[in-house]
Nucleic acid binder design. Structure first.
Length: 892
DNA sequence: ACTCTGCGGAGAGGA
């Protein structure tokens, strides 16, 4: 039994006399059943009365195991000895966040801005943990250490660490674990489990336990601890895992902390308790403490406020973060228990920090809301939302060389989902939070001709693979906060003057000509090369943006500049590198995951594994380093410096997303088109919806150039886009581009086309009906149209089909030959086909938010080179003036 | 109401 719902009213706690002496109590009113039922009164007794002080109207509250009694016909509830009270249970708090919060609330806050820091103790800590996991999975110690250290080659190199010395260090720590594992404490029936992912619906806590032994949590710590008792924060951490294990039917009473460094220390020099394994008992008091700490954190985050340090019992004098804490509070004018140093930044900076912090944290809330749907939605609802693959048939599992597991399954269902190869997912034996669950990575997801989907997932533990769920990670959020923090607190004065509109960008001079036959492109390279601060290159569809960008990279390198080449997507990064290769330049290093980088660029990819010194040198010496903007915030790239950062697809990046890249360089060049798709942001009203590119191009038109000649579309096709989005300035580069025709393709005879498709821009109304986000009749018609183009001799890979909704994409995919690319507008951005068919789906009206952003239409219409066929409901399209104009153009 | 790319993720330690 539990009560869950919004708080309606809160009373001040008071002290009352009871049979058991004086106790605190606070009465609150809430609406259970997620707010659907009438309000009830709940008395929060004892230490839960403290929690009442955190509550404000509107917060969600959860009370477990309450007592109930009728009082004058009304139900009254009260907490019992078994109760927990949880504030905002859908706000997912990481176990390590609770640990940090208990240590110091301010440290919890500051650590959001230093997410990716490279330090030897951290790398070593991770290595020892990995070896620990390997040992539990039965791997030999020597092999494990050797392999894991080799894998960390790049990071160790950047830290100037020698491989042999590190291996010895890790090995001596790992020996302590090995000895402990063999120490008779273990019997044959010892049940071990390593790396357990735990997600709590009740407590709003998630985390990964290092190991679980006979149902009890075991936490590994690479540091030392000479006290008899384990460190309090360490106990808090292990207690969190115990709490979460409790929800999975276990009742841990003991936690174990394993301090590996204790075993390495010299007994004669160190005093105190040097035993590595320290046990402690986990009672209800500690469990409740952990939940109350989480509640404080969740309440503070509810209105996105900034902690001062007074929330916890931190002693600032002993704190190793004291300096950072004081500088941040001084610069941002924040209240801090540690005090502050230095003067405040200009108000523009502080307001910006505030705004972006709130917007980014709001994004985090949206992700958490998505996260909560793992259990608030039924399996069927998840599947209907394309967020889960259910009813998979396990096809066995096998241990890989590194001890982790390959899980195989099949699916006969033709269900579509957002899950794609390479994604991180929750793999479970039936339910993502209630069952046996592990984070995994989809390495294969392929449907064969008879509709069977083969699924392979890699995970640390051997899950029986019956279900996959999209994993809504807020991983990237701290990266954005870090980028914003670095730009404001660490960025140069000059850079900040540009970002905050206090100084116009300046340019040097050059006599060189970079591109002969295109003035705007040449001007773009000129700006990039001579910029003292920044340059902005606006590239409408087909205008040779990538070519120009690559030319600029080369020109900069010829001048001895070191270049960071970045973009929003992996595909754009690889495209730019391809273009560089085509221009005869290949002195670049590609940073990225094996899965993200295209096959053709794998040879340029920087492998992390290897000899430290050599790996680090490869990165440090490369004239051009390329990677996505998200990677630019990684610990590895933060160790690098550049003269210029060039960022492609900048119109699709949020401001903090862009800052991650440009923080690494002296100057920056943003390339993009703000008339195409904007950043994807979960909260529609978010400030993050406007890119830095768009803001700066409006602010500094003199630092910008628009590429105005397009090499892609026939005149007839480009006209509407040019008029509507580019003030008519977009023009075909040559008469040949303007007048291109379908018949120019070999094997195509345009006479063979039905008369409706004769024009370069055609419109067809299939008289269909939209159900859900699918229009079957329209999908049929699209298939017929595709067939007509094919019959006229157009090759399959010259045809692309675009629809706004994924469901319609799936419907069309089933109806056309598999060689034909069918995809959403969003995923088609950046590519082009000779023939494009656009399915609008909507009938009668256009009242879906997807039709509101006209930029999406711009993208869809400008993918076609020689023929464009619009398929949709005339009434629906005529219901909106913008789409009506589009129709008039199509039918003219 | 919809679109969805990146990040191995979470946690590695210091005192």
């Amino acid at each position: 039994m539990e009560l869950r719902g919004p708080v309606v009213a809160v009373e001040e706690p008071r002290t009352v006399n009871t049979r058991d002496g004086t106790r605190d109590v606070a009465e609150i009113t809430m609406r259970p059943g997620r707010g659907e039922e009438p309000p009830v009164t709940v008395s929060l007794w004892g230490s839960w009365a403290e929690t009442a002080e955190l509550l404000v109207t509107g917060m969600t509250l959860l009370v477990t195991e309450p007592s109930r009694e009728e009082f004058r016909g009304e139900a009254r509830y009260a907490t019992t000895a078994e109760s927990y009270v949880v504030v905002e249970p859908e706000f997912m708090v990481d176990v390590t966040d609770i640990r940090e919060w208990v240590q110091c609330s301010r440290q919890y806050y500051l650590s959001k801005f230093t997410s990716a820091s490279l330090s030897y103790p951290l790398v070593k800590g991770s290595l020892v943990h990995e070896v620990f996991g390997d040992l539990l999975r039965g791997r030999d110690l020597e092999t494990s250490v050797e392999e894991r250290v080799a894998d960390a080659g790049l990071k160790l190199g950047l830290l100037d660490r020698d491989r042999t010395a590190v291996a010895e260090d890790v090995q001596s720590n790992a020996r302590a674990i090995e000895r402990w594992l063999q120490q008779g404490t273990l019997t044959e029936d010892d049940e071990w489990r390593s790396e357990l992912t735990l997600i709590s619906e009740t407590f709003g806590i998630k985390g990964r336990a290092d190991a679980v032994r006979r149902g009890d949590p075991v936490e590994l710590k690479t540091g030392k601890n000479t006290d008899a008792e384990p460190r309090f924060e360490d106990k808090v951490q292990a207690t969190c895992y115990a709490l979460l294990l409790g929800e999975h039917g276990q009742t841990p009473e003991t936690g174990t902390l394993l301090y590996t460094k204790n075993a390495v220390l010299n007994r004669t020099e160190e005093t105190g308790d040097l035993s590595p394994a320290k046990e402690f008992s986990i009672g209800p008091g500690l469990l409740q403490f952990v939940v109350r700490a989480r509640n404080e954190l969740a309440a503070m985050e509810y209105d996105i406020s900034v902690p001062t340090g007074y929330e916890s019992n931190a002693i600032c004098e002993y704190c190793f973060e004291q300096d950072t804490c004081m500088v941040v509070s001084g610069r941002l004018d924040q209240e801090s228990k540690a005090g502050s140093v230095g003067g405040a930044l200009p108000s523009a900076e502080r307001e910006y920090f505030d705004r972006m912090y709130r917007a980014t944290e709001t994004e985090r809330r949206e992700i958490h809301r998505e996260y909560a749907k793992l259990w608030t939605q039924s399996a069927a609802e998840r599947a209907a939302d394309d967020k889960a693959l259910l009813g998979l048939q396990p096809q066995g599992r096998s241990q890989r060389v590194d001890g982790t597991w390959e899980l195989r399954a099949e699916n006969d269902d033709t269900a579509v989902s957002k899950i794609r190869e390479g994604d991180t997912v929750l793999a479970s034996d039936g339910h993502p939070t209630r069952g046996d669950t592990e984070l995994g990575r989809v390495v294969r997801l392929e449907t064969d001709a008879d509709g069977t989907t083969e699924i392979i997932v890699h995970a640390d533990e051997p899950i029986e693979l019956r279900r996959l769920d999209v994993y809504p990670s807020d991983y990237g959020i701290n990266g954005l906060l870090t980028a914003m923090h670095d730009a404001v607190l660490k960025g140069s004065q000059r850079r900040r003057d540009i970002l905050f509109g206090r100084r116009d960008p300046t340019f040097g001079e050059t006599n060189a000509t970079f591109i002969d036959n295109n003035t705007a492109q040449n001007r773009a390279v000129e700006l990039a090369v001579t910029a003292n601060d920044c340059a902005l290159i606006h590239g409408p569809p087909g205008t040779g943006k990538t070519y120009t960008l690559a030319r600029a990279v080369r020109a900069l390198c010829e001048r001895g500049e070191r270049v960071l080449l970045s973009a929003f997507t992996n595909r754009a990064v690889d495209n730019a590198l391809e273009q560089l290769r085509e221009q005869g330049f290949s002195e670049f290093v590609r940073i990225g995951t094996e899965h993200g980088v295209s096959d053709s660029m794998q040879d340029a990819r920087l492998e992390h594994r290897g000899e430290p010194e050599e790996r680090a040198a490869t990165l440090r010496n490369a004239p051009v380093v390329a990677g996505t903007a998200a990677t630019c915030g990684s610990s590895v790239l933060k160790e690098c410096e550049f003269d210029v950062a060039i960022v492609d697809e900048a119109g699709q990046l949020t401001e903090p997303g862009t800052l991650a890249a440009i923080n690494l360089a002296d100057r920056f060049v943003l390339v993009g088109d703000h008339e195409q798709l904007p950043p994807v942001v979960r909260d529609d009203d978010s400030e993050l919806g406007t890119s830095l590119f768009e803001r700066l191009i409006e602010q500094y038109p003199d630092a910008a150039v628009t590429l105005d000649k397009q090499y892609r579309m026939a005149q007839r096709i480009q006209y509407f886009s040019s008029q509507t989005f580019y003030d008519g300035q977009l023009r075909p580069a040559t008469p040949a581009v303007a007048g291109q025709q379908l018949a120019e393709l070999s094997a195509v005879s345009s006479e063979a086309l039905p008369s409706a498709l004769q024009d370069a821009v055609a419109f067809v109304d299939p008289n269909g009906a939209m159900t859900g986000n699918v229009n079957r009749q329209e999908a049929d018609r699209v298939a017929e149209i595709v067939d007509a183009y094919r019959s006229a001799g157009v090759a399959a890979d010259d045809i692309g089909v675009i629809a706004p909704f994924r469901a319609q994409v799936a419907a069309i995919t089933r109806r056309v030959p598999s060689e034909i690319d069918v995809d959403t507008v969003d995923r088609f951005q950046g590519s082009a086909r000779a023939v494009i068919v656009v399915s609008f789906v909507a009938t009668d009206t256009l009242d879906s938010p997807i039709f509101e952003d006209r930029r999406r239409v711009n993208v869809a219409l400008t993918r076609a080179k020689k023929a464009l066929c619009l398929v949709g409901d005339e009434d629906a399209l005529r219901s909106d003036p913008f789409y009506e104009r589009m129709l008039e153009w199509a039918e003219s």
